[in-house]
């Protein structure tokens, strides 16, 4: 463990907590893409199947349990409990265009052709594009509540911090995983225009408005 990975995990944890607070406090999931949340739940389910077979540390297990529970819980809140506030009309990104290519790619480009390894690879590829429905929804509505933009900033930062972690591990541990690194860079790059808007607008107290 290193400071970059810890900061990344905490940023990821913060993002999920901010989202849960937003939905619970406002009792609404307006502006949130349910499709992205479904993709995140798939990412965690396919990645943490080794939860009971591979004990790494109490921290690792606790975080996996929290990420699994919160992502499934968020889908429940969005599609069942606060269903009436879910914005179907703006959450229209075709997620099959994300699921199929990443599934095929994980069958072709992986470290080892085994069930667990392919599911892990699929989860890595899917996570890199899972935010697209959310970013698409923000561009369609043309704006986002400030708490939603804080959620996106924390979520985008987490994988950016993981890139620093991979650089650190390469130089100090000689460890690197090219699949995680490439997917992590793609994932972080997708947030670039949002990061620009967040830093130039939201941090100055303005609302996040996308040029229509």
């Amino acid at each position: 463990m290193n400071i970059f990975r810890l900061a990344g995990d905490l940023s990821h944890l913060a993002a999920i907590i901010i989202l849960l607070i937003k939905i619970w406090k406002t009792r609404s999931c307006a502006g949130i893409s349910g499709r992205s949340q479904v993709l995140f739940a798939i990412v965690f389910i396919t990645r943490y199947l080794d939860l009971f077979t591979n004990f790494i540390s109490a921290y690792n297990t606790a975080m996996k349990v929290f990420f699994l529970g919160s992502s499934i819980g968020t889908v429940y809140l969005m599609y069942l409990k606060f269903k009436a506030t879910y914005d179907h009309n703006h959450d229209t990104f075709r997620i099959e265009f994300l699921l199929l290519p990443t599934a095929l790619l994980s069958l072709v480009l992986n470290h080892e052709f085994s069930v667990m390894e392919i599911l892990w690879t699929f989860s890595i590829y899917l996570e890199s594009v899972a935010i697209l429905p959310q970013l698409f929804m923000v561009s369609k509505t043309g704006e986002a509540e400030s708490i939603t933009s804080h959620y996106l900033f924390a979520l985008g930062s987490y994988r950016g911090l993981y890139i620093l972690n991979w650089i650190y591990r390469y130089y100090f541990e000689g460890f690197y995983d090219i699949i995680a690194i490439v997917a992590g860079c793609v994932q972080t790059i997708l947030y670039c225009d949002f990061f620009y808007l967040y830093i130039t607008k939201v941090l100055k107290g303005k609302k996040l408005q996308l040029p229509a």
Binding site: D50, M63, N110, H111, E117, W120
Partner: peptide, 10 residues
């Protein structure tokens, strides 16, 4: 390369 086991990152 053989998959890096065990995967210790979240």
């Amino acid at each position: 390369s053989k998959a890096q086991e065990p995967k210790d990152e979240l």
